[in-house]
Design a protein around this nucleic acid. Structure first.
Lengths: 361, 361
DNA sequence: TTGAAAGCGCTAACAA
DNA sequence: TTGTTAGCGCTTTCAA
C-alpha cells in the first residue's frame, strides 16, 4: 500500500497511542525520551510528515501569514530587461514594490515564527484569490485595490486583514469593516518635492502627470503638488496636466511628448506620479535633444532602484516599502495576540525626498 | 456566539444541505443559479470563509507550492544599505538570490493556479522549518544546504521536492531519495571567465578566493577555474588561494588585503567565487590607491544587481536565478500531474559571462 | 507520562 | 440538481 502514513501508522509501529505521537511533535518534552525516540524512529522509517491541514483544522491556526498583491508586471520593464537596454539582459534586476514588501513581511514573519503565503491576483474562476489565501492563513495583508472592498469586508470579520498603501476609503468606517491600514505620506512627499523645485531651483512652469484610474495614492501625490504650488502663489489646475492609463515607461514617454508638444513654452519641469513614467520621459527628452536638467527638470516618485541607475539619476520620493511589510506583520501579530477587538489602526509611514541629478541637485 | 461560521451555518441559513454549499464554492455551475445566490447571500451575511485546512484535509491537496531558503542576509549589505554608502539609504535595493527565485516561482506557480509558501530556515524548536512547510504544500523547492539531506529524504518519499543549486550529493542515488534537481553550470561559467582573462587580457598571475565551507557550487566554480588555467598551461594550486567563511563583502575585502600583502608580486587578477566578495575587494583596492582594472583585475560570480552598480562595474558570471525558480515550479507541477514515479530529473541551466569594466573590457 | 474519544470543517462518493 | 454519510489526520480534553 502506498497511502501516506498518519499518526495511526506511526503509533501502531511504535507501540504507543496517537496522542503520544502528536505530543512528540508538539511538545517533545512532555514525552519520555525513550518513548520519543521510538516514535521518531518509526516516523522516519515510514516517511511520516505531519499534515499541516489536519493540524490546522484541529488546532484552528495555521502559523502562516499571507500577502495578496496585484499582478504588477510592467510590460515595458520586462521587455527592457529582456532586450538588455544599455547592458546585458538583466533577469529583471529591479525590485518591484511587491518584492520589497514580500521581503519585509518574510523577515518579520520569520521573527514571529510564521511562514508567508504569497499570491498575486489573477481571478481564477469561481474562487477569488483572496478567498483561497484567506482560508489558509491566520491573517494577511492586501495591497490596495487588489481585492474588492466588499470581499475584504466579509473576510475581515473572521481574520485580521491589513490593507497596504491605499488610504482608507470614504464611508468605510461606517460599515463593520475592521481593516487595519498602513500607508505612506504621499501628499507630504510630493509637497516637499514640488516645494524644492520651486523654492530651491526657482522653477515655476510645472507639469504634473498622474494616472487615469483614481488611485488614492496618486491623488494624494497630486494634492501635495497643488498645495506646494498654491503656497508659492503658482496657479495650478484641479487635475494633473496629463493622466495616463498604466503608469508605465511607455506611457510616461508619451506623456512627456504630449507636454512638450503643447502650445506655448514647454514646462520647465515634468513631475511624474511614479518613477517608471519619469524614466520613460527621460527617453523622450533624450530623443529630442533636450538636456535634463538644463532644459527640463524631471522627477518621479517611489524610489525604485532603477531611478538611481538611469542617467541623469532621478530625483524622486522614496517610499519605505520594506518597512511597510514589516509593520504589516507586526500589526497582524498584535491582532492575533489578543488585540482582536481594538479599534482599527491606521499607520502612516514617512517618506523622504531623494535629490539627484534630474532636478539639478 | 462568535464562533466562525461553517458550511453547516451557511447551509442552515440558506435552507440547503452542506453538500450544496460546498458545491457553490467548488463548482458553481453544478448548482442552480437561484440556489447559488441564496447560498452566497447567506455566506456573505455570516462572513463565511471556507477553511483551507478542512478543504485540504478532505481533498488531500492544498493548491500551494513551497520554497525553503537559508537565512541569506549579508550583514554587510544590510548595514551598507542603512549607512547609505555613496547615496541615500537604499532600503536594500539589491535583490538577493532568494528574491529572484521567489519571483520566478511565484510567477510560474500563479500560471498553474498555485500560491507560494515561503519560509527561510531558522530552526525553531522541535519542528524544523521544512517539516512545517512540507506539511502545508503539495510540493516544494529547497535551496541547497538549507535542510539536512536526511530530512529531505524522508519528505521526498511523500511529496515532490526539487533541490535548487546544489549538485546531487555523491552516493545519494543509492538511497531511496527521489529528489529532482536544478543547478547552474558553475564550472562552465568560471572556466569561460578565467579563459577570457587569460586569453583575451593576457593575464597569468591569477588568485582565486573561495569559501571555507565545502559548498559544491563554489567547488565547481573553482574547478572551472583550474581547468581553464591548466588548459592555458598556467600552474594552479589544488585549492583556492584564500578561503573565507561567509562570502560577504567584509570577507572579500579582507581576502583582497591578504592577497596583496602576500610575498612577491601581487596577482594581476583577483577572482572571487561571488559578487559580494568582489565588491568588498574593490573597496580594499580603492583604499590602497590601486586602480581597477589597470593595476588589478577583479571578477565576481552571480551577476547580482550590485555588480553592475559599483564602479568599476564588475565582470562576473550571471546565474539565471529567476528562471531556476520557474523551472522548479514546472518540475513540481509535472510531478504532481502524474509523473510521480519517473526517475529523478536533473536540469542544468546555462550561465553567461558578463564582461564589464573591472576586467578591462 | 500516557491513552481514549470526540470533534475540527470540509469533500466525495453514492443516492435520491 | 440536491441530500446523506463517511471519513480526511490531527489536537484536545479528560482519565488513568
Amino acid at each position: 500500500m502506498t497511502t501516506t502514513p498518519t499518526v495511526y501508522d506511526v503509533a501502531e509501529r511504535s507501540g504507543v497511542s496517537i496522542a503520544t505521537v502528536s505530543r512528540v511533535y508538539r511538545n517533545p518534552d512532555s514525552v519520555r525520551a525513550q518513548t520519543r525516540e521510538k516514535v521518531l524512529a518509526a516516523a522516519r522509517e515510514l516517511g511520516y510528515v505531519p499534515s499541516g491541514n489536519a493540524r490546522g483544522l484541529a488546532s484552528r491556526s495555521t502559523g502562516v501569514l499571507g500577502l495578496c498583491f496585484p499582478d504588477y508586471s510592467d510590460p515595458d520593464a520586462e521587455s527592457e530587461a529582456e532586450a538588455g537596454v544599455g547592458d546585458e539582459p538583466d533577469d529583471n534586476a529591479a525590485m518591484l514594490y511587491s518584492d520589497q514588501i514580500i521581503r519585509g513581511m518574510e523577515r518579520a514573519a520569520r521573527r514571529h515564527g510564521y511562514a508567508l503565503l504569497i499570491a498575486a491576483s489573477l481571478k481564477s474562476g469561481p474562487e477569488t484569490l483572496v478567498a483561497k489565501v484567506a482560508g489558509r492563513v491566520d491573517g494577511f495583508a492586501v495591497l490596495a485595490r487588489t481585492v474588492p472592498t466588499e470581499e475584504l469586508e466579509v473576510i475581515s470579520r473572521r481574520r485580521p486583514v491589513v490593507m497596504l498603501a491605499g488610504p482608507r476609503e470614504p464611508g468605510e468606517l461606517d460599515r463593520p469593516v475592521r481593516l487595519d491600514h498602513i500607508q505612506v505620506a504621499n501628499a507630504d512627499g510630493q509637497r516637499e518635492l514640488t516645494r524644492h523645485l520651486i523654492e530651491d531651483h526657482g522653477l515655476r512652469r510645472l507639469a504634473y502627470v498622474g494616472s487615469a484610474e483614481d488611485s488614492p495614492d496618486v491623488e494624494a501625490r497630486f494634492r501635495g503638488h497643488t498645495e506646494a504650488c498654491r503656497a508659492a502663489g503658482i496657479a495650478v489646475a484641479d487635475a494633473p496636466d496629463v493622466r495616463v492609463g498604466m503608469m508605465t515607461q511607455a506611457e510616461g514617454a508619451r506623456a512627456a511628448a504630449t507636454l512638450l508638444d503643447g502650445p506655448g513654452e514647454h514646462p520647465e519641469a515634468l513631475l511624474f506620479a511614479n518613477d517608471q513614467m519619469a524614466v520613460g520621459a527621460l527617453h523622450t527628452l533624450e530623443g529630442r535633444g533636450l538636456r535634463v536638467p538644463q532644459d527640463v527638470t524631471v522627477t518621479g516618485f517611489d524610489g525604485i532602484p532603477l531611478s538611481r541607475m538611469v542617467r541623469p539619476a532621478l530625483t524622486t520620493v522614496r517610499q519605505p516599502m520594506r518597512r511597510m511589510g514589516e509593520e504589516a506583520v507586526e500589526l497582524l501579530v498584535r491582532r492575533l495576540n489578543g488585540q482582536e477587538n481594538k479599534e482599527p489602526e491606521s499607520l502612516t509611514l514617512p517618506v523622504s525626498v531623494v535629490r539627484r541629478a534630474s532636478c539639478g541637485c
